Amino acid sequence: MKTLKRFVLVGGPASGKGTQARYLAQAFGLHTLSTGALLRQEIEACSDLGRQAQSFMDRAMLVPDEVVNDIVRGWLSNNDETPWLLDGYPRTVAQAETLDSFMRERGLGVDVVVWLDVARELIEARMLKRKECTKCGLITRDGESVCPDCGSEMRVRADDNLEAFARRWQDYESLTVPVANYYAAKGMAVRVRVTEEGEPEEVSLRISQKLKEFAE
């Protein structure tokens, strides 16, 4: 049986990646790298990388590969021995190739890629209901005004509207789906299709079953 220590999680906007990232982290003892959270830290610190990232995020555009790659490389360099999960990276095939090259240089590699393949219609409905914590980044779809994790304010994300979603979905189909296919061609992808609304726990159970089959 394979030992799974290094995970990549990919999926469309509002596909439930944050929820399933927390499940995987708990189930496999993983330290999670969220590129979104790292970018927010850079923005809050008013760093050069943060200012560059902000200019693109304000327009609901993807942050350029070179900016994201620099942030991720720094994090991975300090976590060679740590089981980890990358959430939101790699987002493009170019990023995936950069990640593979960097890992090979360190004698390591990604063990498995979990692909949340969620129907667009379902994601649109979810997106219109969700809120994000202004401090810890927790995303919920229950309409809370206070974060259940840290007690901070919950707000509707500025890019949660149908026009912005359409752009993000186009980016997902043109950039991120090829990433999933890139890893699938290597026999590394565990694909979980979600076409109907259900409890997050149901999706987590399906992921767990597929990972068990993958590792056998």
Rank of each mutant, 00 (worst) to 15 (best):
R193A: 15
G88F: 04
C147E: 13
G29R: 11
V190H: 05
E121Y: 10
L162E: 14
R155E: 12
G198I: 06
D149G: 01
V179T: 08
H31G: 04
V146Q: 13
A158W: 01
C147W: 11
R130G: 13
V177A: 08
W115L: 03
L162V: 07
L99K: 02
E124M: 10
R104C: 15
F165D: 01
T35G: 01
S208K: 15
Y89P: 01
V146I: 14
Q26K: 13
Q26I: 09
A125M: 14
G198H: 14
W115P: 00
S145K: 09
V177T: 08
R168M: 03
G29Y: 13
A53D: 03
V93S: 12
H31P: 00
D149Q: 12
V112G: 02
L122R: 08
A37F: 02
W84D: 00
V72S: 03
A166D: 09
S204E: 06
A53P: 02
A37K: 09
G109M: 12
Q26W: 06
V114S: 05
M103P: 03
V110R: 00
L99A: 07
E42F: 02
V110E: 03
Q20K: 07
P90Y: 13
V192K: 05
V72D: 00
W115V: 07
T35D: 01
K129D: 14
W75K: 03
A25V: 05
E66N: 14
A37T: 10
M103L: 15
G36V: 06
T19G: 10
A184L: 09
A180K: 07
E213Q: 09
Q20N: 14
V114I: 12
K186H: 11
E42R: 03
T35L: 00
A164K: 12
D87A: 04
S55L: 09
K212F: 05
D142T: 14
R155V: 15
D100M: 05
A119W: 08
W115I: 01
M1G: 11
R6G: 02
Q26R: 14
G18H: 06
W75L: 06
G143M: 13
R168F: 01
K210T: 06
L162N: 10
C150I: 05
I71W: 01
V118S: 13
A185K: 12
V156M: 07
D65Q: 13
V203G: 07
L122Y: 08
R155N: 10
A60M: 04
Q52M: 13
D65F: 11
G11Y: 01
F7I: 03
A184C: 10
F165S: 00
V10K: 01
A14T: 07
R59T: 07
R126Q: 05
I43R: 03
L39S: 02
V67E: 00
D171T: 15
L128E: 14
D100F: 04
T98W: 15
S152E: 14
L76I: 15
A185L: 09
R141G: 12
Q20Y: 06
D171R: 07
A53M: 10
P13D: 02
L128D: 06
V114H: 04
N181R: 10
L86N: 02
W84R: 02
E132H: 04
R193P: 11
I139F: 11
D160Q: 04
A119K: 10
